[in-house]
Structures are given as C-alpha cells and as structure tokens.
Design a protein around this nucleic acid. Structure first.
Lengths: 196, 196
DNA sequence: TAATTTATTGACTGTTCGTTCAATATTTGA
DNA sequence: TCAAATATTGAACGAACAGTCAATAAATTA
C-alpha cells in the first residue's frame, strides 16, 4: 500500500535496490560500507535508511531481489521447451560465460553462503530458499529428461539434482579463482557426462 | 635467524598462528577484528603486531599455514599407497565428514577465494598456489590410476583433475549451506562415477 | 653488575563504521 | 491557503576499528 500523501520519492526504488545488490555482489556484506552504497545507489544516507531500513535489512532485500531477478532468469533456462539435456548445457555455459562471472564476482548466493549464512540465520533462511528453488528446477529438468527418454527410467533424479547444484557451486568458485573459459567448458562436459 | 639476545617470547609462535588461522577460518577476514584475535590467540595486541605485523600480514601467514597444515594433510590422502580410486573416495569422504566442515566452517581456501581473492592480489597469489597443488595432486592420482589399469588409457586426466577440484569446491559450499551427510555421500558417488 | 636487546603491556590515536535526527522541501487533502 | 504527511539533507553521534607507542620486564653478553 503506497501512501498518496506526502512528498514523493525522487528515485526509483527498484533501480536503487538493483544497484545495492550489485555492490554487495561485488564486495560482499562486511566490506560494503554505507558510504559505498550512497555512492553507487545515487541517493543519500538518510534516503537509504528511510527506504530500506538499516544495512542488514537492505542486504536481505538485495539477496531476495537477486533471487527474483538473476536466479529466476537462470531457472527459466532449465524450464525452456526442447531438450532438457540441452537446457542443462545452456545453463552451465551461461553460468561461466556471464560477464559478471568473468569479472570474478561469482554469484551473490554462493558468496553469501560462504561469507554470511553460517553466522546469520535470517540470511541463511533466504539463501536456503533460493538454493531449494534451484535444486527443484534441476530435479524437474531431469524428470522431464527421463519422460522424454533422454535419460534411463531408473535414473535417481533427486541425487543428480543435488550433484548439479553442487557442480554449480563448484564452477562458480573455480571461475572466481581461475577463469579459463575453455577449461571450464571441458569441465562442464564432464559434469554432464556424469548424469547420462 | 632467531636472535639469541633479548627477552624471549612467552608464547609459542606456531600455536598462536594456528589459532589465528582458526579465527579467520571461522569468521572470514573482514569480520575478524584484532580484538577477536587477541582473545583467541591468547596474546596481547602489541605481541601480535610485534610478531606478525599488521592484520593483513597475519592473514597471509594464516592462509599459508593452512596450506601447509590442512591442505597438505588432505593431499597425503591422495598420495597414499593402494588404489588411487579408493584414495579419491577417502579424500571426498574426509572432506564432508571433517568436524570443521560439519560446523559449516567450510575450507579457509575456498572461503578466501570467495571473500578476498578477487580484490587482493597478494591473497590471490597464495591461494592460487595452494589450489594448483591440489589440482596437481588430483592429476597425479588419476595418472597413477591409469598406470594401474583402474582407468582407461585414453582418460583425459588433466580435465578430470580440474573437474575434481571443482567438485571439491562444490561439496564445500554445499556442505556449508546444507549439511546432510547421507546426501553428500551419494553426491560423491556421482562425482566418482564421472571419472570412470 | 651494567649495557644491550627484544618482548610485553595497556593506554592512546585517528579513522571509519553504522546509525540518528532536526531542519527543510515537496507533495496531497481539506 | 493552510495542515498533514512524507522524502530529503547534511551534520552529528557513539562505537568499533586497525594500528602505535612509551614504559616496563626479562633475557644475553661483556
């Protein structure tokens, strides 16, 4: 419910949140200062606090926004029409070829799993939810592959979906430390060969 | 060269470094304050600065110590006599069953890859060196498996060694967010099935 | 014993941090 | 036109931060 009375915002809330997400993604939670956020979000300290609450609340909003924007976009790849196995291939290749991954930013979710989730239950909760959505998308994709005859009937799609989620994390971390696209492509081939 | 004159240290340097490593491992670099280190290392501020220099230098020493202690211990598993494939199995099971991993501490190296390496060339250098040692150990292990006839002659052991390194990262991150030992064991089976 | 060297100690420094707030500006509704 | 509501602004806050330093203690060497 948006109030109709009072001074209106001078900035776009979603745009500001997107930029905050970008800063946290790049620098992590602790290393991001309010001053960093002021500079990158393009609004003043007071406006940040007025709109998003404190730093921690803003971070939670940023992670959720990432889940809505970036993660959902990747999940759509898995849900595309056509061959599920080709969708998986497309998913992993986008993962390692995205400009942000190239800049060693990794993924805000895996970064957060490592930096914050073990010490912050609120963050852990949100992250767990997003990770579950990814794993579920893998699971559905694999089930569809079975239905279409791309994988054998007896395939354990649950375990394989967790394997793919684990591989996703692995590729992101490897990509952060050591970004050789050709090699990553070959590693992806091995990953995909494991499910066939 | 240790000086023979002057007041001797009242603490064990290695013990103190081990404890510092433990704090950084648990909390990360940014989230660890000098006060945290004072409390856990059991020595005063001045002694930390006198012995290890500033926080950043201490961190570098801690990461290197981790490489010597923890990583080398894991690499030894890969270099054991007997079946290389069984060694791989042992390696991954230790990875997900270690008490520290269970406490969601993950691995100091992968934590550092995510938090610090992208923004700190000195850290990146040390971490890269340790990652290379792990990958090399996988490579040697796989080559031995080929020699012993456990893997076919045409196996691309280079690519597979990177796949195993990636899987290691993945398991560590998955273990941090979602620690279900039974499931992780099954994921390990899938990983190992991919190289055979 | 005296001189030298180095470790220990805790108070102290300046900076940066996240956060708050009173003053002001801009809108709507009466 | 005035009252009410809300956003904007920049100064200011105390706390926490990394790092320093002079005084002191404990060892060796001459």
């Amino acid at each position: 419910m948006v109030s109709v009375v009072g001074r209106p915002y001078e900035f776009d809330r979603e745009e500001a949140l997107f930029r905050a997400m970008d800063v946290f993604w790049e620098k992590g939670y602790k290393a991001t200062s309010i001053q960093d956020l002021v500079e990158r979000m393009g609004i003043r300290r007071g406006s940040i606090y007025n709109t998003f609450g404190d730093k921690h609340s803003l971070f939670l909003a940023a992670v959720e926004y990432y889940g809505e924007a970036v993660t959902s976009e990747m999940i759509k790849v898995l849900e595309s029409l056509g061959s599920p196995l080709e969708n998986l291939n497309e998913f992993f290749n986008r993962l390692v070829n995205s400009p942000r991954q190239r800049k060693m930013k990794g993924c805000l979710i895996s970064n957060t799993v490592v930096e914050l989730a073990p010490h912050d239950e609120q963050v852990a909760e949100i992250v767990r939810c997003i990770l579950d959505r990814i794993q579920l998308a893998f699971h559905k994709c694999l089930n569809r592959a079975v239905e279409l005859g791309e994988l054998p009937r007896e395939t354990d799609t649950i375990v394989l979906s967790h394997f793919l989620a684990t591989s996703t994390h692995g590729l992101i971390v490897t990509g952060k430390s050591y970004s050789n696209p050709k090699l990553l492509k070959k590693v992806i081939s091995v990953i995909l060969s494991a499910i066939e």
